[in-house]
Amino acid sequence: MERLIERSLFASRWMMAPMYVGLAGALVILLWVFLNELLRFGLSMPTMTVDDAVLGLLALIDLSLAANLLLIVIFSGYENFVSRMDLTEHKDRPEWQGEVDFSGLKLKLVASIVAISGIHLLKVFMDVGKYPAEKIRWMVIIHLVFVISGVLLALMDWISNHGKSMKKGKYARD
C-alpha cells in the first residue's frame, strides 16, 4: 500500500506539465504584445522625441525581460518538478538549463522582478510630471521591498549553503 501511495504521489508531478504548457502559451501572448508595441513604436518615429524613444525602448526591454523570466520558470520548473528534458545534444540548449535548482530559480525570479520593477520606475522618472507624488512614492517603496527581499533571499540561501558545507566538513573530519 505504501509503495502504491508513493508511486501515485510521484506520478502526480505530471499534473504540473499542463501548467508549463500554459506558460508557453502566455509566452505567445507576450510575443503578440511585444510585436504590437514594436509596431506602435515604429509608426511613431516621425514625431518621436528623445524621451519617447527611451520610453518605447524601455517598454520593449520590459517585455523581453518578462519573456526571459517566463522561459526560466518554464525550463527550470519543468526540469525541477516534472522531468528532465532530454536535450543535452541540442546545440542551442542554454548552459544553465538543468543546472538551476529551486534555490537558483528563486534568485533568478527575484532578480528579474527587481529588473522589471526598476524599468517601470525608470519609465515613471522619465515622465515624472505625469504621476502624482504619492504614486511615485509607493512605486519606490515597492521597488525597495523587491530589492531588500532579493538581498535577504540571497543571504538566506548563502547561510543555508554555508551551513550545509560546514556540516559536510565536520562529517568529513570525523
Rank of each mutant, 00 (worst) to 15 (best):
P132C: 00
T49E: 07
L55S: 11
L31K: 12
S112Y: 10
R7P: 00
D52S: 10
W14F: 15
T88W: 03
H120W: 05
L109K: 01
L35S: 06
L107V: 07
L35F: 12
R93E: 08
S83F: 09
L107C: 00
E6T: 12
S76Q: 12
K168T: 14
P132K: 10
L155S: 09
R173A: 15
I74L: 01
M156A: 12
K164H: 08
W96Q: 02
M19K: 03
S64L: 15
A26I: 12
M1D: 06
I29V: 14
S12R: 12
Y131W: 15
K170Q: 14
S165K: 14
L121G: 01
R7I: 04
L27Y: 12
Y20M: 11
S160E: 10
D157S: 11
A53Y: 08
D127I: 06
A67Q: 01
A154F: 09
D157N: 12
I74W: 03
I74D: 02
W32N: 03
E6Q: 09
M85E: 05
L4W: 10
V145N: 03
E2H: 13
H90G: 02
D52F: 01
D157T: 07
D51W: 01
D62W: 13
V82H: 12
D52A: 11
S160F: 14
M166N: 14
S64K: 04
V21T: 10
I74E: 02
V82P: 08
T47G: 05
H162A: 14
I142H: 02
K167P: 02
N36F: 08
V21C: 03
A59F: 01
K123P: 02
S83I: 08
P94T: 00
E79G: 04
V124D: 02
L69P: 02
R173T: 15
T88E: 14
I29W: 15
P94C: 03
E89V: 10
N161E: 10
M126V: 06
R84I: 04
L35W: 03
V114W: 02
S165E: 15
V110N: 10
A133Q: 08
A115H: 03
I142Y: 07
S112H: 09
V140Q: 03
L38V: 11
M139S: 06
